[in-house]
Computed example of a mutant assay.
Amino acid sequence: MGRLPAPTRTEAAALGTAVLALFVGYVLVPDRTVQYGAWLVVFCVWMAWFVAAGARLLYDE
């Protein structure tokens, strides 16, 4: 098995976006609806990261 690729700026942005969404949902506006929306944002960011990381893994090598 090969080495994992180095983290990129896109991965840092995805992580920052997810953390920011959860911060808004749990600290700034602690409402159940906002928390649900925050988790939807986290899921969408994760899915976009997953597809981008998979494409990079498949096509960059």
Rank of each mutant, 00 (worst) to 15 (best):
residue 56 R to Q: 13
residue 52 A to P: 08
residue 18 A to C: 01
residue 33 T to W: 05
residue 41 V to C: 12
residue 31 D to S: 10
residue 28 L to I: 12
residue 58 L to E: 13
residue 42 V to W: 09
residue 9 R to E: 13
residue 49 W to C: 08
residue 55 A to L: 10
residue 3 R to C: 01
residue 7 P to N: 04
residue 15 L to K: 07
residue 52 A to T: 06
residue 43 F to M: 14
residue 32 R to Q: 10
residue 19 V to H: 02
residue 33 T to D: 10
residue 6 A to Y: 07
residue 27 V to G: 00
residue 21 A to E: 02
residue 9 R to M: 12
residue 12 A to D: 03
residue 29 V to C: 00
residue 40 L to W: 10
residue 37 G to L: 08
residue 48 A to H: 08
residue 53 A to Q: 05
residue 53 A to W: 03
residue 47 M to Q: 12
residue 46 W to Q: 02
residue 4 L to D: 12
residue 13 A to N: 11
residue 39 W to A: 09
residue 61 E to G: 14
residue 48 A to K: 03
residue 41 V to A: 14
residue 18 A to Y: 01
residue 51 V to G: 04
residue 34 V to H: 00
residue 35 Q to M: 01
residue 48 A to R: 07
residue 15 L to S: 06
residue 48 A to S: 03
residue 2 G to Q: 03
residue 52 A to K: 00
residue 16 G to E: 03
residue 23 F to C: 09
residue 8 T to S: 15
residue 33 T to Q: 10
residue 32 R to K: 02
residue 18 A to K: 05
residue 58 L to P: 03
residue 22 L to C: 09
residue 29 V to L: 08
residue 29 V to E: 02
residue 58 L to V: 13
residue 42 V to G: 01
residue 3 R to T: 04
residue 53 A to N: 02
residue 11 E to I: 02
residue 36 Y to A: 15
residue 26 Y to D: 02
residue 23 F to Y: 10
residue 48 A to L: 09
residue 49 W to H: 11
residue 16 G to T: 08
residue 30 P to N: 10
residue 28 L to S: 07
residue 16 G to M: 00
residue 15 L to Q: 08
residue 32 R to I: 08
residue 32 R to H: 04
residue 36 Y to W: 14
residue 1 M to D: 00
residue 5 P to N: 05
residue 33 T to F: 06
residue 29 V to Y: 04
residue 47 M to K: 02
residue 6 A to I: 08
residue 49 W to K: 09
residue 49 W to M: 02
residue 32 R to E: 07
residue 47 M to W: 11
residue 29 V to K: 07
residue 6 A to T: 03
residue 28 L to E: 03
residue 15 L to M: 01
residue 51 V to C: 00
residue 21 A to H: 05
residue 30 P to D: 03
residue 29 V to P: 07
residue 51 V to H: 07
residue 41 V to P: 07
residue 18 A to H: 09
residue 29 V to I: 13
residue 20 L to K: 03
residue 46 W to P: 02
residue 54 G to A: 08
residue 35 Q to A: 04
residue 56 R to I: 06
residue 49 W to T: 09
residue 51 V to I: 14
residue 33 T to Y: 04
residue 34 V to S: 01
residue 46 W to S: 13
residue 60 D to M: 12
residue 11 E to Y: 04
residue 40 L to C: 15
residue 30 P to G: 02
residue 52 A to N: 08
residue 45 V to S: 11
residue 56 R to W: 05
residue 34 V to Q: 05
residue 11 E to D: 13
residue 8 T to V: 14
residue 20 L to D: 02
residue 34 V to L: 10
residue 42 V to P: 03
residue 54 G to T: 11
residue 50 F to I: 15
residue 46 W to Y: 13
residue 21 A to G: 05
residue 6 A to C: 05
residue 60 D to I: 12
residue 27 V to T: 07
residue 9 R to N: 12
residue 3 R to W: 07
residue 7 P to D: 01
residue 11 E to F: 05
residue 25 G to E: 04
residue 5 P to S: 04
residue 6 A to S: 01
residue 6 A to W: 03
residue 18 A to F: 05
residue 44 C to Y: 14
residue 37 G to I: 00
residue 9 R to I: 15
residue 50 F to R: 15
residue 48 A to N: 11
residue 59 Y to Q: 02
residue 34 V to F: 12
residue 22 L to F: 11
residue 6 A to E: 06
residue 23 F to K: 06
residue 13 A to Y: 13
residue 24 V to R: 01
residue 40 L to F: 13
residue 2 G to D: 10
residue 39 W to L: 15
residue 28 L to F: 06
residue 25 G to F: 00
residue 32 R to M: 09
residue 12 A to R: 11
